[in-house]
Amino acid sequence: MQLAMFAYFGAAILLSALFVVYFRNPIYSAMALLTMFMHIAGLYVLLEAEFLAGVQLLVYAGAILVLYLFVVMLLNVQSRGRFVQKQTPAVIGLGVLAVIELATLIFHTRFYPELPAIPHPGVPTLGNTETIGMVLYTQYLFPFEIASLVLLIALVGAIVLAKGKLKYR
């Protein structure tokens, strides 16, 4: 059952990612990306990360993708001319080399033939969201605050960049 679910989600993710690269119209690409985000959320549920599945749907599918669609429709650029960039043969050769290297690495690595044991078997485990909350607000409190700073800077930067010519007085 789990294998079948993994096969479905994995195949859908790869197919929609290919469509993102393949489609000529940016709006179709964004829609394919939406499909990919949703199936990745399904994969997170399969991996028992329910909170992250919710965050994935809310933040990626809900916020980031809408931002993309806004910009694509705002610019309204018909793609004309070539579809892909020009590349030299050396670049293509290097790409093939990278693919071969990656495949070799994956097929020659032994990933945990036996799973490590659960650290404290007697303790009843909390739910996924409770555990994340506990760790995030104790052990990772400082990175959490830094993340809010990153978001603030991105907010100000995006407004300044998109506003165009400011009148400095």
């Binding site: 940016p26 690409s29 694509v72 793609s79 070539r82 579809f83 892909v84 960039q85 590349q87």
Partner: peptide, 8 residues
């Protein structure tokens, strides 16, 4: 690497 459209 291959696409020309910066949004993509």
């Amino acid at each position: 690497l291959i696409r020309r459209n910066i949004v993509i």
